[in-house]
Design a protein around this nucleic acid. Structure first.
Length: 286
DNA sequence: TGCCAGGGATAAC
DNA sequence: GTTATCCATGGC
């Protein structure tokens, strides 16, 4: 894999769907904002711009200026060889993971915006993936900023940014409930107020190690063990984090005799978790 | 209709 | 330290 410059746009060369699969990566439950245009191009308002990604057989085309290639590498976690990492895990006696890895190959763990992940995974509690996407959509269209851009193959496309903490800190519970977040309204407003008032909090959280980050996050109402681990995994890139939700619990009960020793997955337990989650929740295999 | 969805807070023991 | 109940909302 390498990134080259074609007409000032970054192109990811020599990358297959087994190495990075955009469909799986954007549909696997870690992000709820990327949209796929009918013409097959993924787009989303991230990094203060509309980013487009088009997967071809051996390369990925972008609208990103070559100057921002470092951001792209970090966001898509192109600086990690997933096959190499997985080769360190013994799959021989781990039938479920072997199947899950085969199904989920190509998923990457994104490095997403911290505040967005905090709010998104507060919304995720006791909610369906479909509803989470709907809530996040409504929050962005009601509170975010509209961005439009002209893309050669698509014409003008429009997307909305995820709102800044300041915006949700100053809304009301009844206004926020128009986004159908239900009982999670006060959690969202409370943490938005805190993040806005204590400007050092998010930077400190980014500097913290995994265990410290979990403790800092669980201090808030609405963030427990599972949500804290999702935030650590999808925003802070603590890829040792292993969120246990209702699907993972069922996997543990049905395929691991009620207990799983995640130490055998070393420091990439989060990647393993994501293969399992994708296989169980999104491949409809049973 | 009742049950479940990428859970967590609270009260009760 | 564990357990039961409730919390909005939508799909099936």
């Amino acid at each position: 894999m390498k990134i080259v410059d074609i007409n000032e746009k970054a192109v990811i060369e020599k990358i297959t769907k087994d190495e990075l699969n955009l469909d799986k990566t954007f549909n696997c439950g870690q992000t709820f904002r990327w949209q796929k245009h009918p013409k097959g191009i993924w787009y989303c308002a991230v990094n203060n711009q509309i980013v487009t990604l088009k997967q071809e057989e051996h390369r990925i085309l972008t609208n990103i200026n070559i100057k921002d290639k470092d951001w792209l590498v970090k966001y898509l976690n192109l600086d990690m060889d997933y096959a190499k990492e997985m080769s360190k895990i013994n799959l021989e006696k781990d039938d479920y993971l072997r199947s899950a890895y085969e199904a989920g190959k190509g998923i990457h763990i994104l490095r997403q915006d911290l505040y967005e992940m905090i709010i998104t995974f507060i919304i995720s509690q006791m909610n369906s993936m479909r509803n989470i996407r709907s809530c996040v959509d409504k929050i962005c269209t009601q509170y975010g900023e509209q961005i439009s851009v002209e893309i050669h193959e698509l014409g003008e496309i429009t997307s909305y940014t995820f709102p800044e903490p300041k915006i949700l800190a100053s809304t009301t519970e009844s206004e926020l409930r128009k986004c159908k977040v239900g009982f999670r309204d006060r959690y969202i407003i409370e943490i938005s107020e805190f993040v806005y008032n204590i400007g050092t909090f998010l930077p400190d959280l980014k500097e913290a190690d995994y265990n410290t980050a979990i403790k800092m996050l669980k201090n808030f109402n609405g963030i427990g063990d599972k949500v804290a681990n999702c935030i650590c995994l999808f925003a802070l890139h603590h890829i040792e984090a292993f969120p246990i939700d209702t699907h993972i619990k069922q996997i543990i009960n049905n395929y691991y005799n009620g207990h799983i020793d995640i130490s055998k997955y070393g420091n990439i337990a989060g990647i393993v978790q994501q293969y399992m989650f994708y296989y169980k929740a999104l491949c409809k295999e049973d």
